[in-house]
Amino acid sequence: METLALLKEKGFKQAIITNKETRYTEKIIAAHGLGQYMDMVIWPYSSIHRKSNIL
């Protein structure tokens, strides 16, 4: 998590790209506290999903 936080602080855009279904991906991201570091999540059978606070 330290690396993710440092990259976010330095302004790097970060994303999760997965082949898991949305319902599982959201649970995994939340369980591991990754959402705060990610700017985008991409999963199958959908368009690109961006966090709601992205400009």
Results as ranks from 00 to 15, higher is better:
Glu26Tyr: 02
Gln36Asp: 07
His49Gln: 14
Ile16Leu: 15
Tyr45Ser: 13
Gly11Arg: 11
Ile48Phe: 13
Lys27Thr: 10
Gln14His: 01
Leu7Met: 15
Lys10Thr: 06
Lys51Glu: 09
Thr22Arg: 10
Glu26Ser: 06
Tyr45Leu: 13
Leu4Cys: 15
Gln14Tyr: 04
Tyr37His: 12
Ala15Pro: 01
Asp39Met: 05
Leu55Pro: 14
Gln14Arg: 07
Lys10Val: 05
Asp39Leu: 04
Trp43Thr: 14
Glu2Thr: 12
Lys20Glu: 04
Leu34Val: 05
Ile16Ser: 04
His32Phe: 15
Asn53Trp: 04
Thr18Lys: 01
Ala31Asp: 10
Ile17Lys: 00
Thr22Ile: 07
Ile48Gly: 08
Ser52Tyr: 02
Thr3His: 09
Leu34Phe: 14
His32Asn: 14
Val41Ile: 15
Ile29Ser: 01
Lys27Ile: 09
Met1Ile: 06
Lys10Ser: 12
Ala31Trp: 01
Tyr37Phe: 15
Ser46Met: 02
Lys8Ile: 11
Thr22His: 13
Ile28Trp: 06
Arg23Tyr: 12
Ile17Ser: 05
Ile28Arg: 03
Lys51Arg: 14
Leu34Tyr: 10
Leu4Ile: 10
Leu6His: 13
Leu34Ser: 07
Met40Pro: 06
His49Ser: 13
Arg50Val: 07
Gly11Ser: 09
Asn19Phe: 07
Gln36Pro: 00
Asn53Thr: 11
Thr25Tyr: 00
Arg50Asp: 05
Thr25Ile: 00
Lys10Arg: 15
Thr3Ala: 12
Ala31Tyr: 04
Glu2Leu: 11
Ala5Tyr: 05
Ile16Asp: 01
Met38Ser: 02
Ile16Gln: 04
Lys27Tyr: 08
Lys20Asp: 03
Gly11Lys: 13
Thr25Pro: 00
Leu4Gly: 10
Ala15Glu: 00
Met38Trp: 00
Ile48Gln: 14
Gln14Ser: 02
Arg50Leu: 14
Tyr24Lys: 01
Val41Cys: 06
Gly33Val: 06
Asn19His: 02
Ala5Arg: 15
